[in-house]
Design a protein around this nucleic acid. Structure first.
Lengths: 339, 339
DNA sequence: GTGAAAGCGCTAACAG
DNA sequence: CTGTTAGCGCTTTCAC
């Protein structure tokens, strides 16, 4: 039989109220002796709090929900890990929901999290153009429930909202500047979906780097991908009859596809073509030609998300916070001076 | 204000009990008219069940706990995804806990899951020799609470226990046989930690393949790794002064390390050395030389784990089940006939 | 310093 | 076919 707060009250000859007070070490002047007695008998009897009961009473669950497209993707997994580690530090828990980018499943996840009374939700989504409205509706739903929400990389909203973001425009700028500094002038870009702010920002950073260096921009060298390995390959197919000496893939997975695509056309990295990625996915370091990339502190962003959510849960009236993170250029072997 | 079952009872002029009955569509003959009326007003009023209350009452949470070493590892992430997808199909949820292989954190995770009243726990751990006792104690703890438990790949236990396992002896055998069939005789092995049953089984499969082909076994060609990229590198360092024509790394991550290590010593894959891995990690297919490997149906094992747990939760007296999964040899470019 | 009592939202007998 | 009632385990005034 499970041992309850009542049981230990009976065992110590005290009341449930007193027991509750010390078990949650609430500020209340309870004799040091009784306090110790309660603690020790609780341990002896193997008491374990029942969070359902506490949650019912207090409307707090000390649990955060995380909604991501796909836990198998290293990028999201790293974010999740950051969130979870920060939760563990504070004794909180996490419920994970993968949506596979389906707005319907996202909706279900949100409903489930409400039902489970989570104290906050981290939402990361990469909606396609078609799903954008559904996605916005989902966000509104969370907001309407007054559940603290933090978003990654999607800030555009009529009212301010908690968010963790990297400065992707700067990231795009840094990558392009690196290539330009190496002497490249004909640079191809394989972007993410055009509906994603993060991808658009990167692209505008690229253009800015061209402007700042008085170089002509060529829209023909831009291929719109979707952040998948396959779309890196597709990008090279598209570019195969074009003239370029470097490729900037907007994430590392696509850069891997670019490697493979270039090989197909008999082009070597970095001898014939320089390649730069984005994210610093863990494979980037163990590729045959280690990939130069822009590192996103995604783990730290996860940790920060947890902090923001816990803070918001404990301070309902706190204003929204937007945490901006710095990107870093990691130079490895896939980029080199043009011949 | 949150709308409760009482509110909708009041609104429909019925009792909370009736409302509860139809909202959970319990078998009870309630007039189709009232049923419809309840359902529609519930929708109108935006009713959302409070699982804390239900859980308090029923001791069921429709939530499963997953305890893994590291969510960032593709192997565990895939397993987690399998579990989660299967949960989503049934409207269940998951709480994730990463332990970073620390028995203490594992213990905390278990306590947290108890407190949260999960209906089942999937435990996957790769304890080192030192931590083995702690790990066993943790397992006993779960069992002692009568919470359904399913383990991956660890079956040795005094009593039968729910488990999903691959036949690693067969896997080791298959990989080695493949190499032998290609003419290799001097094969090096980079194993997992010796405390892990999965690694031991693989190794015994390797030995069996040697026996069956009347080949002499050489312990000097066995390096004990720890499933990390770095230990693949270390393995090659250890082997650098030995004579071998093929390497079997007990997982793909170590095989990646092997690639890098071989390159360091000026050896090409597969021209000079054939390499075979294990798991079919997603990188294996996108490496410069795609890796031949033994594929574990880890996603399916995750799904099955969920099924086992849900079944056990709903049938407390059901006997433990052990689901065995088949491995598959995936031949890519990293193995070839010996010259 | 400590206890009594009420109630969070829901479900499960049992009664009608 | 539907309603009454009694809690599940915990927290929280308020009273002593």
């Amino acid at each position: 039989m499970k041992v309850t707060i009542k049981d230990i009250a009976k065992a110590t000859g005290l009341s449930p109220a007193t027991v509750s007070l010390v078990l949650n070490n609430r500020p209340s002047r309870i004799a040091e002796a009784t306090r110790a007695r309660i603690l020790s008998t609780a341990r002896e009897m193997g008491y374990r709090p029942n969070s359902a009961a506490a949650s019912l009473r207090t409307n707090r669950s000390y649990t955060l929900g995380l909604i991501i497209p796909d836990i198998q993707n290293d990028y999201y997994a790293t974010y999740a890990k950051g969130m979870e580690d920060a939760c563990a530090e504070c004794g909180w828990n996490m419920i994970f929901c993968s949506t596979n980018n389906s707005p319907t499943r996202e909706r279900q996840a949100i409903e489930a999290l409400f039902t489970k009374n989570v104290d906050g939700i981290a939402l990361v989504a990469t909606p396609s153009k078609d799903d954008e409205n559904d996605f916005i509706a989902n966000r509104e739903l969370i907001l309407s429930m007054k559940t603290p929400l933090v978003q990654m990389d999607l800030t555009a909203y009529k009212e301010p909202i908690n968010a963790v973001i990297s400065d992707h425009q700067k990231g795009g700028y840094m990558a392009t500047r690196h290539l330009i500094a190496l002497g490249h002038r004909k640079i191809a870009f394989i972007t993410g979906p055009s509906s994603l702010e993060g991808s658009q920002s990167r692209l505008s950073g690229c253009k800015k780097a061209f402007q700042d260096n008085n170089l002509p921009w060529d829209d023909g060298l831009v291929y719109t991908g979707n952040y998948s390995y396959a779309s890196g390959l597709d990008g090279i197919d598209y570019l195969s009859d074009k003239d370029f000496t470097a490729v900037f893939a907007f994430n590392d997975l696509m850069a891997c596809g670019v490697y493979c695509g270039l090989e197909k056309y008999g082009l070597a990295v970095p001898t014939d073509v320089s390649v730069i990625g984005y994210d610093d996915h863990f494979v980037s370091g163990i590729l045959s030609v280690p990939l130069t990339t822009i590192r996103q502190p995604i783990y730290e962003m996860g940790k920060e998300s947890t902090r923001i959510l816990i803070h918001a849960a404990e301070n309902p009236d706190a204003p929204p916070v937007v945490s901006k993170f710095d990107l870093k250029l990691i130079v490895r072997k896939s980029t080199r001076k043009i011949r």
